[in-house]
Amino acid sequence: MTHATYSGIWPVAPTPFHPDGQIDTEGMTRVLDCMIDQGVDGICILANFSEQFLISDEERALLTRLSLEHVAGRVPVIVTISHFATPIAVERARFAKELGADIVMMMPPYHGALLKGTAEQTFEQFRAVGEVGIPIMLQDAPLSGVDLPVPLLVRMAREIEMLKLFKIECPQAAAKLRALIDEGDDAIEGPFDGEEAITLLADLDAGATGTMTSAMMPDLIGPVVRDFLAGNRQAAIEGYARVLPAVNHENRQCGFRSAKAAMVEGGVIASDFCRHPIPPLHPDTRAMLMELLRPLDPMVLSWGK
């Protein structure tokens, strides 16, 4: 049994910077407005595709407050709080809750390639955050390198009351989603996919109710999810086939730089600067991204013009 509250498209908001590397706060508000105008069901901030690993603690606080105040309840907001240290993850959850966040998202505890939480340490960290009293989305992503077998996830879902959502973006995500839903049953309230929707159709077929993509074209991917969940399978397949070349180019060539490049093209933000050591998109890679996006006419390419 899944909950309609946790369905649809909940993309990650990119973090815009000025060319000198400072956060563009006005640009951040425009990013949020552009996403809401595209009919998103929710927004996630401070995630990996927000470049959270390049942002200071002070900037995190600024962006959390700014985003929640500006969205002002128009759509639910997820605040990413991942950290290796459990007390810091708990404090981040408290801060997000105090400011009015609807959900927090976190990966299992890890730091680099070799320092990873065990299954029990992962359970304990999520349980500690759950005691804050805000719904949690667990992010099962390759970046952490932590193995999260389905029995562990089901145990967590059943024993941690606030753990409501599961964003599965590991290899063979559809198979894991299917097993998670089968074994977890009612405890799995919001099975989501990620990775820019590169495996979206398979994941929906496995029972996913939502997706967390980038902010590049949620107005075109959202209808795929809604058609599929409404039983309009062929419409979903056709809609997905239309956007797949751009999704593939984003996922394999651009990463989080794609949404910012599209937002610059559409006048949403003024700069697609990424902090060092992230290099800018190669001009040819960027040109192909636009070549694939323009025929699709996503709102992002005209929103600010």
Rank of each mutant, 00 (worst) to 15 (best):
residue 3 H to C: 11
residue 5 T to C: 14
residue 8 G to P: 05
residue 10 W to I: 01
residue 19 P to T: 09
residue 22 Q to D: 14
residue 29 T to N: 12
residue 31 V to S: 03
residue 32 L to C: 05
residue 35 M to F: 01
residue 35 M to Y: 00
residue 36 I to A: 03
residue 36 I to P: 02
residue 36 I to H: 02
residue 45 I to C: 04
residue 45 I to A: 04
residue 51 E to A: 15
residue 53 F to C: 10
residue 56 S to I: 10
residue 59 E to D: 14
residue 59 E to Y: 02
residue 69 E to Q: 10
residue 72 A to Q: 11
residue 77 V to N: 08
residue 80 T to N: 14
residue 87 P to S: 13
residue 88 I to R: 11
residue 89 A to R: 01
residue 95 F to H: 15
residue 99 L to H: 15
residue 100 G to Q: 00
residue 100 G to C: 05
residue 102 D to S: 10
residue 105 M to R: 03
residue 107 M to Y: 00
residue 108 P to C: 12
residue 109 P to M: 13
residue 111 H to T: 07
residue 115 L to F: 09
residue 123 F to H: 08
residue 123 F to Y: 15
residue 128 A to C: 08
residue 129 V to G: 01
residue 131 E to D: 14
residue 137 M to L: 13
residue 147 D to I: 08
residue 148 L to G: 01
residue 149 P to E: 10
residue 150 V to D: 11
residue 160 I to W: 05
residue 166 F to A: 07
residue 167 K to N: 14
residue 170 C to A: 15
residue 181 I to L: 07
residue 182 D to Q: 11
residue 182 D to N: 12
residue 186 D to T: 12
residue 191 P to C: 01
residue 196 E to N: 11
residue 197 A to T: 00
residue 200 L to A: 03
residue 201 L to Q: 05
residue 201 L to P: 00
residue 203 D to C: 04
residue 217 M to R: 02
residue 221 I to C: 06
residue 229 L to P: 01
residue 229 L to H: 01
residue 236 A to L: 14
residue 236 A to I: 10
residue 239 G to R: 05
residue 243 V to N: 06
residue 243 V to W: 05
residue 247 V to Q: 08
residue 247 V to C: 07
residue 253 Q to L: 09
residue 253 Q to A: 12
residue 257 R to V: 04
residue 262 A to M: 09
residue 264 V to F: 01
residue 268 V to D: 00
residue 272 D to H: 04
residue 275 R to V: 02
residue 277 P to I: 07
residue 279 P to L: 06
residue 286 R to H: 02
residue 286 R to D: 06
residue 286 R to Q: 10
residue 288 M to T: 08
residue 292 L to W: 08
